[in-house]
């Protein structure tokens, strides 16, 4: 990697300030994507702002939702008894990201801010009608994700926490890419009293998305048969050496069925 400067921020406003005073500073959360990129010399930021000391870790029960600090590690979410009780599907999702080493370094905020089209967490934020809390504002999930690797975050904005609404029932089904074990297709189904939300990751060319046909079918009839009745289109789905858009479309249907029947 190229040499760079590391600044340890004490709170999120200090982090934002450090970003502002750098030319091309980057926030360093868990570093699970950023550090390998730097090692490959594919980015050359003049400054890394380490936010591990900003007090952004922890899980809180907020009644109708669960609020998780941005720097909370995947392993902590996976092992949290609070999450396991309130939204077990979220704990499952966190426990299935990467490997043990990644889960002990990687963070919720890092994953959400990066918005990798094959990351697991964005689907949970989307399906659980989440809210992204930044140092400036609260952003609803539907407004937050703006396409592959793009979010509503502005230059002077840092994610502090994400809130997830407690569903009546939810399940995340991941079909992992056999090599990377990222989601080749991941479907998060969440049933609320006022309807069902279905978010798909790993498949869309624009990153995570809600599948409205599946949502309306499941909202009126929460069953595998309802899923079978939906023709999942391959339009807008990714094709790569691992899976064609057609195959991904098939997997969306299959993973949804499994999520519904689990």
């Amino acid at each position: 990697m190229y040499s760079t400067k590391i600044v340890k921020a004490e709170n999120s406003s200090a982090a934002v300030q450090a970003i502002g005073s750098s030319k091309e500073g980057k926030i360093l959360a868990g570093g699970m994507t950023l550090i390998p990129t730097l090692k490959q010399r594919l980015a050359n930021p003049d400054c890394l702002i380490d936010i591990s000391g900003c007090g952004l870790e922890g899980v809180e029960d907020k009644g109708s939702s669960v609020r998780i600090g941005a720097m909370t590690k995947h392993a902590a979410v996976a092992e949290s008894s609070l999450v396991a009780k309130a939204i077990p599907a979220l704990a499952d999702l966190a426990g299935g990201i990467g490997d043990r080493q990644v889960r002990n370094r990687g963070t919720l905020g890092g994953s959400v801010a990066n918005n990798d089209p094959a990351a697991c967490y964005p689907s949970a934020v989307m399906a659980l009608d989440g809210t992204v809390h930044t140092n400036k504002r609260d952003i609803s999930a539907d407004d937050f994700f703006k396409g592959m690797f793009e979010t509503a975050l502005e230059e002077d904005e840092v994610i502090e926490a994400v809130s997830f609404k407690k569903p009546e029932k939810a399940c995340y089904m991941k079909f992992p890419n056999p090599a990377s074990r990222y989601a080749m297709v991941g479907v998060f189904v969440a049933k609320f009293s006022d309807g069902v939300r279905v978010a798909v990751t790993g498949a869309g060319e624009e990153g995570v998305f809600r599948h409205s046909d599946l949502e309306s079918a499941l909202s009126s009839n929460f069953s595998e048969e309802a899923v079978s009745g939906v023709e999942v289109s391959s339009d807008g789905l990714m094709s790569d050496i691992h899976a064609s858009a057609d195959y991904r479309a098939n997997l969306i249907g299959e993973m949804t069925k499994r999520a519904v029947s689990s």
């Binding site: 089209p117 094959a118 396409g147 592959m148 890419n177 060319e205 624009e206 990714m238 094709s239 790569d240 050496i241 691992h242």
Partner: peptide, 11 residues
């Protein structure tokens, strides 16, 4: 980055 080539070009 092979997985991203097509989507990126399109984008």
């Amino acid at each position: 980055g092979s997985r991203l080539i097509h989507s990126t070009a399109k984008k």
